[in-house]
Nucleic acid binder design. Structure first.
Length: 202
DNA sequence: CTTTGGATCGTCT
DNA sequence: GACGATCCAAAGG
């Protein structure tokens, strides 16, 4: 067992989303007894990014994206799935990092209970909606503060650094700006979701 | 192994 | 009224 680690501070989230996204790799998402290492993320860049939920300005749904760094933006999609983002940059910027995949560290039994369809441990959180299901993240957690842990959700640094050379590719599942290389992952990690695992050069 | 289609509903046009 | 920052089971090679 590794050390529990300490929570990232507000300042960690306050900068540019394209710098913060790769730095979130190998950090640890924790809720109660459940913990998993973040191995895949995507950056969404507010009102400048056609693929961002904030592209057309503030709405009731995306309010958390505009509210300032260090909170969780949770949205519902495809009529059945929740996905979670970490809000970055100063309030009003609406930049966010989608948490796409994580490697289970602790609380595997709880994750399996929430995701009985997972046949193997590698399937517990290797996708944005699977990750939310494994952590029981729903719309009730939209706006959760990851710094204070007001809803029990935190992101910790346990001393494992981000990859020196993260994998980079286009983002998954979008139909606009798909060539923008804003997906980052831990190279070679088996818990990365489907999609291009190979490093892409642009 | 890869491909395909169904499920299912909040959100914004 | 159309469309998802998806997942899964089933069918096909």
């Amino acid at each position: 067992m590794g050390s529990p680690g300490r929570a990232l501070r507000r300042s960690f989230y306050a900068g540019d989303v394209l710098e913060i996204a790769p730095r979130l790799l190998n950090k640890v998402l924790v809720r109660g007894q459940v913990a998993a290492r973040i191995v895949e993320v995507e950056a969404y860049r507010g009102e400048e990014d056609p693929a961002s939920h904030a592209f057309r300005g503030p709405t009731p749904r995306n309010a958390t994206m505009f509210g300032g760094p260090g909170r969780l933006y949770v949205y519902f999609t495809y009529g059945m799935h929740w996905c979670a983002n970490v809000v970055c940059a100063p309030a009003g910027s609406a930049e966010a990092v989608l948490l796409r995949a994580a490697a289970p560290l602790r609380g595997v039994d709880a994750m399996r209970a929430r995701r009985p369809k997972s046949r193997r441990d590698v399937d517990l959180a290797n996708g944005p909606a699977k990750l939310c299901e494994a952590f029981a993240i729903t719309g009730m957690d939209d706006g959760a503060d990851l710094v204070t842990g007001d809803r029990g959700i935190r992101i910790l640094d346990d001393g494992i650094p981000p990859p020196t050379a993260p994998g980079v590719s286009g983002r998954v599942g979008i139909r606009v700006a798909e060539r923008v290389p804003w997906r980052f992952f831990v190279p070679g990690d088996h818990h990365v979701s489907r999609g291009p695992h190979l490093q892409v050069h642009w």
